[in-house]
Every structure is written in C-alpha cells, then in structure tokens.
Amino acid sequence: MKRVFPILSVLTATLLIYALYQALVVAPTEQTMGDVQRIFYYHVPSAWTAFILFFVNFGASILYLIKRRPAADMVALVSAEVGVVFLLVNLVTGPIWARPVWGIWWTWDWRLTSTLVTWLIYVSYLMLRRFSSGGQTPTLAAALAVLGALCIPFVYFSIWFFRTQHPQPVIGGDGSIDPRMMHALLINWLAFVCFAFMVCWSRYRLEKLQRDVNQAYAMASLLAPHGSARR
C-alpha cells in the first residue's frame, strides 16, 4: 500500500504532461477562436470530474446514513472538497475563454447559471461541515448532501426552461469536432480524473490522520491523572 501511492502519483503526473502536450501541440488550432479555444481541454474535463466527485459524495452520504461508517463520511467530505475545487477551475476558465470569444466575462446563460448554483450548493455543504462541531457533523452533512444532490436536477431543469424562454447569447453551433480535438479532450479528462483521485486519496489520508490524532488526544486526556489533562 505504501508503494502504490508514489507509483500512481508518478503515473498521473506523466499522464497530465502527456495530456498537456496533446492539448497544446497535437490538437489543431480552432479556425475562428484560435489558440484561446485550447482552454476547453481544461474547462470541460474539470466540470465532468467535479460532477463525478459530487456523485461520489451523494453515494457516500447515503451509505453513511445507512451504515454509519466513518470511512463513508470521510469519502463524502473529501469528494465534496475536491469537487468544489474542480468546479471552481471550470467556473474560472469559463470567463477567461468568454472574454475574447463572446466579448463578455459572464452571461446568465443556463449552463453558466446552473453550474454556479451547483457550486453554491456544495460550498454551503462545506460551510455546514466547518460550522458544526462534534460527532453530529457527519450526520447533518450527509442529510444536506442528499438534499443538495436532489436539488441539482431541479436547478438544471428550471434554469434551462427559464433561459430557453428568454434567449441569451450562446456559443455558435457545435458543428463537428476534429478527432484529434476529441482525443485531446478525452485524454485530459482521463488525466483529470486520475489527478482528482490522487488528490482525494491524499486528502483522505490526511483526514484519517487528523481524526486519529484527535482521538489520541481525547484518549490521553481521559487517561491522564486528574487535573493534568492538556491538549
């Protein structure tokens, strides 16, 4: 187990470098947008990865509510944290691309708005975890995760309907995509998923360690002679 982590880290780093090469060199330059389009190879995979992580968070939260395993709670915490960061990458790269291409940083298009609302829901999840204390945190967080995940279809559906009624500037027709572009996109996605997995794993180990330390402190103060308990 100890050797698996560094080996997988090296593999992930190699994959990320290869994906970067694919995105910047191999994939052809887009005809109308030029090189700025290449941000797409980061923009899209980060969103897809974030949604996988939120799905993991939902599953782990339900598992926690049923089985009450601390491991499920830690998986839920870790996946939400990393998912929020990946979705933030998506939300930041979007305007960077939109400014030269659309001429505006932000528009309340349905995709942008729903992604932002999804991000807000998971930030509120992390806020709850931060503000609640003690052994009830996992239960409360798991309940919120379930409600939040159920809310996401409503968010997408309502905002989609809202914005199709009132059209907004959107990207020109998708057209066909060059197979090398598709390849670069998928390679980047694979690299991002591996990267997210490695971050989650190390964050999981950190969380586990933190909990063990806290438990050891609590144990030590219980066993210490009366009056000398110190944290």
Partner: peptide
C-alpha cells in the same frame, strides 16, 4: 447558518 443552507437549495423554487 440558516440562510447559507436554505438559499442555495431554494433557488429552483424561488425561480419558479
């Protein structure tokens, strides 16, 4: 904490 939890999840309902 209440508005921080309530507002994001209420967005679809509020929009409707």
């Amino acid at each position: 904490m209440l508005p921080l939890l309530l507002f994001p999840i209420s967005i679809p309902a509020l929009l409707a």
